[in-house]
Design a binder for these strands. Structure first.
Lengths: 228, 228, 228, 228
DNA sequence: GATGAATGAGGCTTCATTCAT
DNA sequence: CATGAATGAAGCCTCATTCAT
């Protein structure tokens, strides 16, 4: 997009010129990638800890032990930092949840799996990422909002497709053509607010297992209700 | 809090000293109240339209047709403006939803009513308030977050109590002691994300009735599932 | 000077029209005077306690239990408040010290008396006034500085005259034509810094008697040295 | 205090890593130092000329021919600007006076020297610094006042020690245990008010030599008086 | 005379971004 | 590639003063 190769999951064209990179080029490439990650991790921590606006570029650079200029070499601007973070989290989330939902064909096991994964794996291990996707990235700028929407849209699509497969396979009829979409949005909303309430606002991580199970039960309850 | 009577729902002590206020005092009081409202409305519009950060105090003053100083006469600072707005919205929402949920004793009618009121009354008429409570007030400052949490806590408490009354009246057993709370949080989460998705992000207000009905059906489905 | 009769020591023209004021006019006059004093006392306290700049007109009005408008009725502006205060203090100081120095003819008793009065009467009883004349009024504006200078000039003149009378009466010769003036300035400087050091900065009021005696001894020592 | 090396008398560690700094690093360091000085000098001039409050940061930046941001790069605050200035002046003063007083052992020569240095060297050459230490820094903020006090305390300590050495060496007895301290404070007070009166208020710099000599005579007179 | 709401210029400070070295 | 000093627009807020009632 611009002159800066600003992402780890992009610049992998090994064997550019038909051969391997030179030893030193490889090392440089590796260092580049490391720096990129260090900065992103610093931003992640500071955004979550102090808030997107309060976290200045200088503080981020300090924490990453680089200069401000270097941050601007790897990222177009502060917004870009947030967007990369956001996309990364979205990617991870979709990997986690999406793969679970994709298992959901006839049974409801996929929904259970997704809940388990989210509440018992993701939430306790990545509280900072929760803060970023559900708090810090909210309402920051049109562009950020676009990325947020895309992430949610994809997650919702996964859930929706699971629901529609379920419908097709079990022969139940949804109340309206929008039902699947609405239910998918609902499910995302539950995940979001539960995480916000019990991780970001209160720290009830000890009860997270129960919370997750109750949530899954409720989610499934609504779905099951359709099946008979 | 301080000497300035900064809210419409507060200073109503008519008949202060046994009699009515003098004519001119009444008028001044009324004008005061009007100015307060004018400024708050201007802030509401600008916060929703341009975002909390982008909306400068000067712009707000301009839109309210007063000077910056006047804004600071009625509100302690920019944050205060947001908080008053937030509390106002929280108050309105609790009036709307709370009263519906409080009707929910044996039947599930209260849950239906609440959904109807939210999706068919509140959402289409107050999209700016949705933007403020669900977008602009998110992660702005610890104090704002405190107010947000209080609002959500109260709404959740209303739902939870309704669920617990239902449990008591119907004799069903929830899965865990946390179930009622978790379900209440889930329901708030659905409302939030549905509004965000279909009002703030996309404009699907035309389909709002269907969306609301589907949502209510899903909410009730999960609840009903408990009852047998 | 302007339409406002802004001083207690000015507006005493009793028997304006050859007769006494009416009863109610007298009362009004008295109330006027009281208000003036109340405001000035409030300003004195706040200027000393919080500093001239930090003390806002509104706070002063509050403490005097009047409105801002009323303050502006009695005083032209904030600077005027400070100046009236300053002049009042200067007047008091000159009464105290000047009368003592004027006693100094042949003996040095006047110098002793002045020191005693300043350190044992004025300093412990009017610490706020010390703060105003020696701290808060320093470098605030050209006009204030002018008043300050006039106050110091008069006090210095008193001392200087005492010294010159001493010279005339005892026949000693000062080192230079400036000596008397210089010594007078020195003496004022000692008073000032001693008060600043031991009242404003440290609170050594318990030792004030000793401090005063030591200071007087030093002052006299320098003077006595001339006499033989 | 923070990562920015904000003072000329601090960052002198030549030969950091066993060798000299690189040519360009040296130059950058020098330029840094120069900028710092330029800004401080601009502040000195404006504070003295227009007063601390009237001198806006923008004017200071303009005079130093840098941007406002640059001023804030080198100094934390406006207050910091004043404090650095103050400390610098205090340092210079202590070098001047302190070294003179430290010479005072048996004779009174040190006292003479100090007076001469102050009135004939410092006062005429640094009238702006007089204005800052004796006028502009007075009563500006608790922090500034703290620095002022420290400066005065140190100067007073120097004088006091000289007096106590004199006492020890000549066997005279002071009137009270506080005498030395009181006299030291007195001497500082004389310096201060003489400078204020004859440099800041009136411009009697032409007579400064005589003034200084008279002052010294008076100071010594008080001291000598003790010795017999 | 008294009130206090309204004014608005002006102040300080922050911070994302750039660019010469 | 990396640095970090420099920029300057933009933001929030204060507060002495005025004036209609």
């Amino acid at each position: 997009m611009d002159k800066k190769n600003n992402s780890s999951q992009i610049d992998h064209h090994p064997g550019e010129n038909g051969g391997a990179l030179s030893r030193s080029a490889q090392r440089r490439q590796r260092e580049r990638e490391q720096r990129y990650q260090t900065i992103l991790r610093a931003a992640e921590t500071l955004f979550a800890r102090e808030g997107y606006h309060k976290a200045g570029m200088e503080r981020i650079a300090d924490m990453a032990e680089v200069s401000v200029g270097t941050v601007y070499f790897y990222f177009k601007n502060k917004e870009d930092l947030l967007i990369q973070l956001l996309d990364e989290i979205g990617y991870q989330l979709r990997n986690l949840l999406g793969s679970a939902f994709r298992q959901a064909d006839m049974s409801l096991a996929g929904f259970e799996k997704a809940g388990k994964v989210f509440f018992e794996d993701f939430c306790p291990h990545y509280p900072e990422r929760l803060a970023i996707i559900f708090r810090e990235s909210v309402g920051q700028s049109p562009l950020v909002e676009t990325h947020r929407k895309r992430i949610f849209d994809r997650l919702i699509a996964d859930v929706r497709e699971a629901l529609e497969r379920l419908q097709a396979n079990t022969g139940v009829a949804f109340q309206s053509p929008l039902s699947a979409e609405v239910m998918a949005v609902c499910i995302m909303g539950m995940y979001e607010r539960l995480a916000y309430q019990f991780i970001i606002w209160e720290d009830r991580s000890a009860e997270l297992k129960t919370i997750g199970e109750d949530a899954v039960a409720y989610i499934l309850g609504g779905v099951k209700n359709l099946c008979r």
